[in-house]
């Protein structure tokens, strides 16, 4: 599949890189994610309800899409959201497990349980941006650019998909996370060979 990468974002607890350039660094004591939310003027209060996996995916996708420019929040179905990690929704899973660990303190919360699915982050990005296209979360036994590239190429086999917001989003705790996102765009000069 003839595609090209248009814009990249790398986000860790220590720094934010956009298109390979350092844009922000964490300051001890502050939540880096909340700092970035304010720095980039993201007016989306739902952010504060999200679990850490969603926050990381949301922040990285917002910065990536601002970089792309153009009008946002227009309903479209030609953009897929395909994200990857190894540990699924482990942090939310452990949080929910603590609420049901014993019968004396049994208080399962729907607002925690709903985040115990990795594809909630792909859903949050689709909702934020009004993307009606394909959304999918794929788990790999380890981070493999080759396996991700193959899955991204396959996503373009959907006749409606012309671009994919994609990459690795892992968050195993509030302080251990990594997002490496990119926009993958189909080269206009090459027809979609899978389209029939």
């Amino acid at each position: 599949m003839n595609t090209k990468v248009k814009h990249t974002v790398k986000l860790t607890p220590k720094f934010l890189d956009v298109n390979g350039k350092r844009v922000a660094e964490a300051v001890a004591g502050d939540s880096f994610l909340t700092m970035l939310y304010r720095k980039f003027n993201m007016d989306y209060p739902k952010f504060f309800k999200m679990d850490v996996l969603c926050k990381v995916g949301f922040i990285a996708s917002e910065i990536l899409l601002n970089e792309e420019g153009g009008e946002r929040f227009v309903p479209r179905a030609d953009r897929a959201v395909i994200l990857f990690n190894r540990n699924s929704s482990l942090n939310a899973d452990r949080t929910f497990q603590r609420t049901i660990a014993n019968t004396e303190e049994f208080y399962p919360s729907p607002s925690v349980f709903v985040y115990t699915l990795p594809n909630i982050v792909t859903g949050e990005i689709a909702i934020r941006n009004k993307y009606h296209g394909e959304s999918s979360f794929i788990l790999l036994p380890e981070k493999s650019q080759e396996a991700m590239n193959q899955a991204i190429d396959r996503a373009f086999m959907d006749g409606e998909t012309t671009s994919v917001l994609t990459g690795w989003v892992e968050a195993v705790s509030e302080t251990e996370y990594e997002a490496e996102l990119e926009l993958r765009i189909m080269n206009v000069s090459s027809p979609n060979i899978f389209k029939t």
């Binding site: 190894r86 540990n87 699924s88 482990l90 899973d93 699915l117 990795p118 594809n119 792909t122 959304s135 999918s136 979360f137 794929i138 788990l139 790999l140 036994p141 380890e142 493999s144 080759e146 396996a147 899955a151």
Partner: peptide, 29 residues
């Protein structure tokens, strides 16, 4: 903790069958 993710189970199944490719796990609710 390593064993919790279904990606780990997928890899162990691929190993069981002697398959050389990295298995894919789809987790979309």
């Amino acid at each position: 903790l390593e064993r919790v993710t279904p990606a780990h189970t997928a890899q162990r199944m691929a190993n069981f069958f002697g398959n050389p490719n990295m298995p894919i796990t789809v987790s979309n609710a």
